[in-house]
């Protein structure tokens, strides 16, 4: 079982989460101005990297927060987690923390 560190709830089994999608895709900020190619890229084009990949998961059976997850697709290892807007690649080795977040197994 993959275990994911929810920024609020700590380490939980992946069965509490729902996979949402590729976190590297940004919804066009100004929908009317985005080109057809940009929409096509946002909706359809997905890399299938071997190794670390940023994903969005929802802690759907827990606090319902959306979580950004840096996961190694080869080993299933979760390398870092944070809130959707966090940058996990900026030197993050451990889970990102929010002000009131606490990590750990306890809860």
């Amino acid at each position: 079982m993959i275990r994911i560190n929810c920024p609020y709830c700590g380490l939980r089994g992946h069965d509490e989460f729902s996979y949402i999608g590729d976190a590297t895709k940004q919804r066009p900020a100004s929908p009317a101005d985005a080109t057809a190619a940009e929409w096509h890229d946002f909706v359809y084009i997905r890399d299938n990297p071997r190794g670390p990949h940023q994903e969005i998961w929802q802690h759907i059976q827990g606090c319902r927060a959306f979580v950004r997850v840096l996961r190694n697709t080869l080993t299933h290892e979760v390398l870092a987690t944070g809130l959707p807007q966090d940058d996990l690649l900026a030197g993050a080795s451990g889970p990102a923390k929010t002000e009131e977040a606490k990590t750990g197994e306890a809860s």
């Binding site: 729902s18 949402i20 319902r64 927060a65 959306f66 959707p84």
Partner: peptide
């Protein structure tokens, strides 16, 4: 429900 939460938390905070 999840769709609405996603837009509120991820795309349109």
């Amino acid at each position: 429900m999840s769709h609405m939460e996603e837009y509120l938390q991820v795309h349109w905070p």
